[in-house]
Amino acid sequence: MSTLTQEPEREVRTVLLHTGASKFIGDVGAVFVREILLVIRDPFTLIFSLLQPLVFLGLFAPMLTGAVGGLGGGGGSTAETLQWFVPGVIVMISLFGTSMTGSNLLYELMTGSYERVLATPLNRSAILIGRSLKEFAPLVVQGLIIVLICVPFGFRLYPLHLLVGLALLGLFGIGVGALSMALALAAKSREWLFWGVQQALLFPLLILSGMMLPLESAPSWMQVAAQFNPLTYIVEAERALLSGSFGAAEVLWGWVAAALTCAVGLWVGIHRTRKTV
């Protein structure tokens, strides 16, 4: 008799678990589609965000070729410089784009549209995760465009390595995007606070990663500080991958840094989203 009673209870628990998991995945998908459609309807933002990286490529790379020899392990030619410099530019796109994700949320907070989203039956954690996953698609498109532009100028393309590198950046970008949205939720109507913190963190992280200039000639304190910068490991991993290496230790450490950034970003973002009233 007890066995007959327990069986329906197990079935009910299984159905509830399945329904809860299915709803969460459906909510994440709904938020992701909503955010992607906003990007597709306004492609100018995606195109405009490429202007700064293209300016860096057009003006900064030639100066590196003349001033710093052998960055890519060669004689300091344009092709070797691009092989060293382009991965840093792709990481820069990821960092700039995802760190400004919170600005869109700030606009929604000011206009009241975010409150309307919270009033829906969507799971709050799903809202954050869906928005964060949206960061992956623009990164892939922008990274491919930058690489294809550089190929005629001597950049060596390794397609499979490039795809793995973009996946690594996507994982990292999800974490940074989640942190940016958490900052926007904490700042709320104080827009100055969001931009002040974002700018105060963005450029030190960029410089201390060796993204634009090699750190070998930097002061010792900068080299030590760079070891605590997760972006350093992302940049080194991208350079190894886009040079055609899967087995380099830098690639492993890059995945570790990206995974930790993603985990911390989602944890902080979800915690902040759940606290939002």
Score class of each variant (00 low, 15 high):
13 R>D: 11
19 T>W: 13
20 G>F: 01
20 G>M: 06
21 A>F: 15
21 A>L: 15
22 S>F: 06
23 K>V: 12
25 I>T: 04
26 G>M: 08
26 G>C: 07
27 D>Y: 03
29 G>Y: 07
30 A>T: 14
33 V>G: 04
33 V>W: 08
34 R>K: 13
35 E>A: 13
35 E>D: 15
37 L>S: 08
41 R>K: 14
42 D>L: 09
42 D>A: 07
44 F>P: 00
44 F>I: 05
47 I>D: 11
49 S>L: 00
49 S>D: 02
52 Q>N: 12
54 L>A: 08
55 V>K: 01
57 L>P: 09
59 L>C: 11
60 F>T: 05
60 F>E: 01
62 P>F: 07
63 M>Q: 09
64 L>I: 11
66 G>V: 08
70 G>H: 10
73 G>I: 12
73 G>E: 12
74 G>L: 07
75 G>Y: 05
75 G>I: 02
75 G>M: 06
77 S>F: 02
78 T>P: 09
78 T>R: 09
79 A>E: 09
80 E>L: 06
85 F>C: 04
88 G>V: 04
90 I>L: 15
91 V>T: 14
94 S>E: 08
95 L>D: 02
97 G>E: 07
100 M>P: 01
101 T>G: 15
102 G>R: 02
107 Y>H: 01
109 L>N: 01
110 M>T: 10
111 T>M: 01
111 T>I: 03
112 G>H: 04
112 G>M: 04
114 Y>G: 03
115 E>P: 02
118 L>P: 08
120 T>G: 06
120 T>V: 03
124 R>E: 09
125 S>I: 05
127 I>C: 09
128 L>F: 11
129 I>D: 04
131 R>K: 13
135 E>G: 08
135 E>R: 08
137 A>Q: 09
138 P>R: 00
138 P>Q: 10
139 L>M: 15
141 V>Q: 03
143 G>I: 07
144 L>F: 14
145 I>F: 15
147 V>C: 11
147 V>P: 10
148 L>H: 08
149 I>Y: 02
153 F>W: 10
153 F>I: 04
153 F>Q: 10
154 G>V: 13
155 F>H: 01
155 F>G: 07
156 R>M: 07
156 R>G: 04
